[in-house]
Nucleic acid binder design. Structure first.
Lengths: 203, 203
DNA sequence: GTCTATAACATGATAGAC
DNA sequence: GTCTATCATGTTATAGAC
């Protein structure tokens, strides 16, 4: 078994377990078992648990921070652009449903520097600021209601992400089994789009 | 120092730390320090870490599962009722901002039985089913758009809870410092109400 | 009820043979 | 590169004095 393969298997196993149990809840032994190797190998490829965690975490952050830039980059009208974002973002999260809760949980009680080099102020942030301007301009032209842009943006994020974060809570409250929840998720994109579209109509 | 006082101090310290760091991330030593006693006392009052955790967790669950039944109980028109819920729920979460993320995180990867005696199907669930019926009836009377009730309910929950769960993410993305985020939260109730109100208007 | 001391075990990390 | 064996430390929990 050549080097890169083992290394890759470790990363994948670590990702799976870290995402579900978090840094504090994960045991190196469990990662080793899942990767089909032993603990010593983990420390051979990655010096420490923290280093392995940082690798997994950094990848997860990239997935949760809107890298859905394609949807936001074009010059569509604002309504279509926001709807396109919802579709692209929900689609992406569906492929990695554990990422949002993992990132948010690990982000809590950690200094900013841990997950972001302070040099670059971040591409997603800049793209968002540009979007905020577009929203304001569209509002000035009377194309959408004048919600404060930050609230509008949080609303869109909330509608898109929340079901994946709060799955156990939702299933309990609405008495859905796993199959019912899967159906719910399949409908989700269309339903969020419709709800948002309605909220963006001019009074 | 009489018994109930020490016991209470332990519970409060445990709550504070469990809520922020979760079960796996919490050390009994830290709880003892926060309560101003030593570890042995924790085991004197509560047999084990798990038992202490279950106590804290059960209390938190009661706070996150809509105990805002007053807002849902009356016979207001459906729009007013939903808006009243939003106001009551956000207000309650603001008093315990760490509860939602804590409950959701600990709920993940735990069997249902852990947090809910299977006998009683749960007051919140029944109240919600009743609300679902009210929504359907209001839709049949053409008072609000015919969003599937489950999606509408999740949307309302998402708009209300998400900012508290995703605070670090939001602050990073929107470049808010703590003061800016506090202001954001103060505006939140009104903004969610407005957004929801708009989404509930008849086309 | 409260403390100190310590047992019993789990866990991250390393040494060294192959 | 991979393994076994082991160290060093941390953590839950208990024993026993006061």
């Amino acid at each position: 078994m050549d080097k890169s393969d083992t290394r890759q298997r470790i990363i994948e196993a670590a990702r799976r377990i870290f995402l579900q149990k978090g840094m504090a809840g994960t045991r190196m032994q469990e990662i080793a078992d899942a990767a089909g190797i032993n603990k010593a190998m983990l420390h051979y490829y990655f010096r420490s648990k923290e280093q392995l965690f940082k690798l997994v975490f950094a990848e997860a952050v990239k997935e949760i921070f809107p890298k859905v830039e394609k949807a936001l980059a074009g010059d569509l009208p604002i309504r279509e652009k926001l709807l396109a974002f919802v579709r692209a973002y929900i689609s992406q999260i569906r492929e990695h449903p554990f990422v949002p809760l993992f990132v948010i949980h690990e982000l809590s009680n950690r200094p900013t520097e841990f997950f972001m080099e302070p040099e670059k102020s971040g591409a997603p942030q800049k793209m968002l600021q540009k979007l905020m301007q577009e929203i304001i301009h569209a509002q000035q032209r009377g194309e959408i209601p004048d919600y404060p842009p930050q609230h509008l943006w949080v609303n869109i994020l909330a509608l898109s992400i929340f079901p994946f974060i709060a799955r156990p809570l939702i299933q309990q409250l609405l008495q859905m089994d796993d199959k019912a929840f899967e159906r719910f998720l399949e409908e989700r994109t269309a339903q969020v789009a419709r709800f948002l579209d309605q909220a963006l109509r001019i009074a």
